[in-house]
Write a protein that binds this DNA or RNA. Structure first.
Lengths: 326, 326
DNA sequence: GTGAAAGCGCTAACAC
DNA sequence: GTGTTAGCGCTTTCAC
């Protein structure tokens, strides 16, 4: 009933634990001896304890991921990218959701540190920066995702979207579709959203269009979207921009509930591509989330000395929701 | 640069390691001593090594999840349910995707075993059963998800949907919507699909309707859906049933590409609810995936002696894609 | 080639 | 209360 240890195997094979360790990890052992050891391994159903192994290495082989919320399409794809690289490197991924709760976030990052993860990917707020920075200095590669740090600490890698470019891209596309009055909905005051708005405003400005502050609403939760939408619609905009894929469904629903149709009543442009995008004809600005996840995991695996600052370009995926011309 | 150990803390505080361990884990220590220890902990930035701790416990506090593919809506919700319970219990979750590759699956389950996970949730094929069974016998609670085992091994918990009920529910709903010729698309020969088909066939049978074998097609990948659909459509069905949420988008697209509209040209009924369901008016048979994930994690946390066999009831979420009346 | 023995960072008796 | 000491399961010198 009890698990066999390396000592049990050694006893069964009539050798020392050192020898067993050698055949398991590829040291120089005579053919015949190795055979006896493998026999014992099999008959005892021995499974090495990775935890104990990690004591010597100083750290585990697991990659830690602390994410806002798996439900968001961006994070989901990011996760898949991380998983792919981890899997190819024999690493497992350990993850935890923060649900935007700073307390949870700090706790999870701490736990990851205690687990001596091989590296850490954090996508959440700024509350973890202190510890993350120390972890990085201590030799655990850490990569910050999707966040713009004013002055990024050395050692901390970062992977992000060029948010200003995304905003500008939105402006240019809407202008090219003949829209002149844009309303924006975001999900709380995140730095990435601020940058997207900056880009949007600049792009609009170049076309002689303004983006006044009251054309921007915010909804921290899906339940707040309807109210925010109502506030925006009194301005009679001809285009709605949703700054995050996390709110696409809710914004779409709020509009649909009012009987508004795309692109006739309103142009609709949102962030992050999603599976139903083509079917619904919704034009999006896509982030290469999967690629970003892969690169993040690669940074952990490769652990370069110099802090990497990776910025990815957004991509416009044109469909029909903005009244695109043929 | 090097990490502080419990010994470093002890030295800095002028106490023994045992005392440090006590203040960290809540033993009886004098107030003043504890204060000195905490001071040392802080100044040395000491973070206990969870790996080493787990050696004593015999296992880690992490819950392992080996899943087919995070992309599927069912598995995603399942995962969120698991995460919720794990998080509430101070556990982290470690996961790996198999992408339906038996080789990957075996390797991942093995790795989880080596990691001495507190418990394991497996959603994949049968290739892991041997090892999983041994793990369970060895005291690691294992729960099999969404799979019907002919004769489930003792010790292995299982959490599944009542697939026959789901099939019957589909039949009854379509019949009540006046449909008489049903075509079915599945994703490969999974036991759960077989059961759903059985239920569907029985339900249809009670209404005097048949479900011949050539009204059932299979698509192992999204890329095969279009061809499978073409084969089904020659029978001129008045209803299409999709047996898995993983194929909903592809099936919907294949139909839409042919200019077929719901519910006028065809009824459309699929498995697993999804965010865009309401917007698209697609009627679904939902699995309580989140709840199932919670229960699976609870089984691991509680680790009951008797193997649990949990079966969940599907739920019909009526919208408009089947031509529902009023 | 192989074994004995010293640790890895920590907990848990057991003394004082 | 606090320290000493013996492990937990494993890797890794260092002899032989």
């Amino acid at each position: 009933m009890k698990r066999a240890t390396i000592g049990d195997v050694a006893a069964a094979a009539g050798v020392s634990v050192a020898t067993v360790s050698r055949v398991l990890n590829g040291g120089a052992v005579r053919q015949a001896t190795a055979a006896r050891v493998w026999e014992a391994v099999t008959s005892l159903d021995y499974t090495p304890n990775a935890l104990t192994k990690s004591i010597f290495a100083g750290r585990s082989s697991t990659i830690g991921v602390v994410i806002d919320d798996l439900t968001s399409p961006f994070y989901l794809d990011l996760m898949r990218g991380i998983d792919e690289v981890a899997s190819a490197n024999g690493s497992l991924v350990m993850f935890a959701n923060t649900f935007h709760d700073p307390g949870r976030e700090v706790a999870h990052v701490r736990t990851m540190d205690e687990q001596r993860v091989r590296g850490l990917v954090v996508t959440s707020g700024a509350s973890t920066d202190e510890r993350t920075r120390r972890m990085a200095e201590g030799g655990t590669p850490c990569v910050i995702i999707a966040r713009s740090l004013p002055q990024p600490p050395p050692h901390l890698h970062s992977v992000k979207l060029d948010n200003r470019a995304a905003g500008r891209m939105m402006a240019e596309h809407l202008v090219s579709c003949g829209r002149r009055s844009v309303a924006v909905i975001s999900s709380g005051p995140r730095p990435s959203h601020t940058e997207r708005i900056e880009g949007l405003r600049r792009g609009l400005g170049e076309a002689g269009l303004a983006l006044p502050d009251d054309a921007i609403a915010s909804a921290d939760a899906n339940s707040e979207v309807d109210e925010a939408m109502a506030a925006l619609l009194v301005r009679r905009p001809d285009a709605i921009v949703c700054l995050t894929g996390r709110r696409t469904v809710a914004v779409h629903s709020a509009l649909a509930a009012r009987g508004l149709r795309f692109p006739d009543d309103l142009a609709f442009l949102t962030m992050d591509d999603f599976a139903w995008g083509p079917a619904l004809g919704i034009t999006v600005i896509a982030q290469p989330a999967y690629r970003m996840g892969q690169r993040a995991a690669e940074l952990i695996v490769e652990n370069p000395n110099r802090a990497a600052r990776l910025t990815f370009k957004p991509e416009l995926i044109t469909r029909t929701s903005c009244g695109e011309k043929g």
